[in-house]
């Protein structure tokens, strides 16, 4: 199978533009065709430039979402999280020649790196230099200020409650929902069986619900 064939098989499922515009959402992109993705990874490890580019295009959105969910905004922007996501992508590319397929999905390798990079960023207190946003060239089609603020507050609330979950439950929910990994893929990242992930995610969801309800009563 050629790189172009593999890329053609995978890329249509990769979300384009904002996820809100994507018909198939995130999850299908991660499960597009695992055997094709494995073959694409194999070609990328061998240095195939097109395969590397496709692989990165496939993984980057998941990594960006993961970093944004874990790190949140600073001064209303995702600059820090996006920079960390960029570091993850670079680290993945750097490690690619040394990657050996041990039967685990490539995503678990990527999110292993992402998890460490996020932990490093959380430990770092260097969050002072926040670049300002460039002036837009055209009309801004994003949601208006009111909707943005409401969404921002809700998302911050979600992060605050997630931070009160045990670390493994928080990581599980972010990988499953935000990054769109399957139970099997999430299990590979966290070192759990898919069955254990399903049990744990029930508990995590129940715990999150309990925290939200307690807050609404208080």
């Amino acid at each position: 199978m050629t790189t172009s064939t593999i890329v053609a098989g995978i890329m249509p499922n990769v979300t384009e533009g904002r996820v809100a515009d994507a018909a198939t959402g995130v999850r299908l992109a991660t499960r597009s065709d695992e055997s094709d993705l494995r073959e694409l990874t194999s070609l990328a490890v061998q240095g195939d430039r097109a395969a590397i580019e496709s692989l990165l295009g496939h993984l980057r959105p998941m990594v960006v979402r993961y970093c944004r969910a874990r790190l949140g905004r600073v001064s209303g922007h995702y600059h820090i999280a996006d920079d960390v996501a960029q570091e993850v992508c670079i680290a993945v590319l750097s490690a690619l020649p040394r990657y050996r397929d041990m039967g685990r999905p490539f995503a678990s390798f990527v999110f292993g790196i992402a998890s460490h990079k996020v932990a490093d960023a959380l430990r770092s207190s260097v969050r002072s230099a926040v670049p300002t946003q460039d002036l837009p060239d055209g009309p801004d089609e994003r949601p208006g200020p009111e909707e943005t603020v409401v969404r921002y507050i809700e998302a911050q609330h979600a992060r605050a409650l997630l931070s009160r979950l045990p670390a493994n439950q928080r990581e599980l929910l972010i990988l499953r929902v935000v990054s769109g990994l399957s139970a099997e893929e999430t299990g590979n990242v966290l070192g759990m069986s898919a069955g254990a992930v399903r049990v744990a995610q029930h508990r995590a969801l129940a715990r999150l619900r309990q925290l939200a309800e307690l807050e609404s009563i208080a």
Binding site: V19, R151, A158, R209, A212
Partner: peptide, 21 residues
């Protein structure tokens, strides 16, 4: 469900800032 609503809000916030791709 409040847990689902919160996760949906987080997803929307993470996805809807610029173009992640």
């Amino acid at each position: 469900d409040p847990a689902v609503r919160l996760l949906a809000a987080l997803v929307a916030d993470v996805d809807d800032v610029g173009d992640v791709n």
